[in-house]
Amino acid sequence: MSLDSFAAIVLAGGRGSRLGGADKASIEVDGRTLLAHALEAVVDAAEVVVVGTQVPTDRPVTFVREDPAYGGPVAGLLTGRDALFGSFATVAVLAVDMPRVTTTTIRRLRDAAEGRDGAALTDPGGHRQLALVLRTAGLDAARPPLEEQHGASLHSLLAPLDLAAVPAHDREHRDVDSWTDLRDLADPGPE
């Protein structure tokens, strides 16, 4: 797998229901929006697709929405995959609500993906997080029919793929699903 050039898909189209319907992409952490953090993490990508509501950004990206809306991470990921203009051997996938993922995280994932179908960031319990690097051919082969994508499980989609587990450093695995998560993310105390 050539890791020289890759694309990135940022998943930013959720409902934010545990946040009272707030748009996660626009929530600020450390003085910047979650979307700005995500775009910085994938700055090395040759092309970036954001699956979510279009907002101004500091770099050129393609915005798309899954149809039907709020189809979940599989529908968002595959919508993002279909929106890529270029042809890439690998694609980085990142949930917009993981502000501690950095370019270094993405590089570690890319390195670990070498010779495999991809790599996934894991939390201290070994659970996969929505920070991945996937071989595009493997993703395409695992793709379910269109009528099965809405609400599909990401775990099921990725099950046939050989993914390296990349343990998170510090708080890389932390996401913002609730206001408590946001408060805890800002707290520099021990994990």
Rank of each mutant, 00 (worst) to 15 (best):
S2T: 10
S5Y: 03
F6K: 02
A7Q: 07
L11N: 00
A12F: 11
G14F: 02
G20Q: 05
S26E: 13
S26K: 13
G31I: 10
H37I: 06
A38S: 14
V43P: 00
A45I: 07
E47S: 11
V50D: 01
G52A: 05
T53V: 15
Q54V: 10
T57E: 03
R59M: 09
P60V: 12
V61K: 10
F63I: 10
R65S: 13
E66F: 11
D67I: 13
P68D: 09
A69F: 04
P73T: 13
A75M: 15
L77E: 06
L78P: 01
L78S: 02
T79Y: 06
R81N: 00
D82V: 04
D82Q: 15
G86V: 14
S87M: 12
V91F: 05
A92D: 06
V93H: 04
V93I: 15
L94D: 01
V96C: 09
M98P: 00
P99L: 07
P99I: 04
T102N: 03
I106P: 01
D111V: 14
A112K: 07
E114Q: 08
G115L: 02
G118L: 04
L121E: 01
D123F: 10
G125E: 07
H127Q: 06
R128H: 14
L130D: 00
L130Q: 09
R135W: 01
A137E: 13
D140Y: 01
E148D: 14
E148T: 03
E148N: 07
G151L: 14
P160W: 15
L161V: 10
D170R: 14
E172R: 08
H173N: 02
R174V: 07
V176P: 04
V176I: 15
V176C: 09
D177R: 11
D177G: 14
S178E: 03
T180A: 12
D181E: 05
D181N: 14
L185P: 04
L185C: 07
G189P: 00
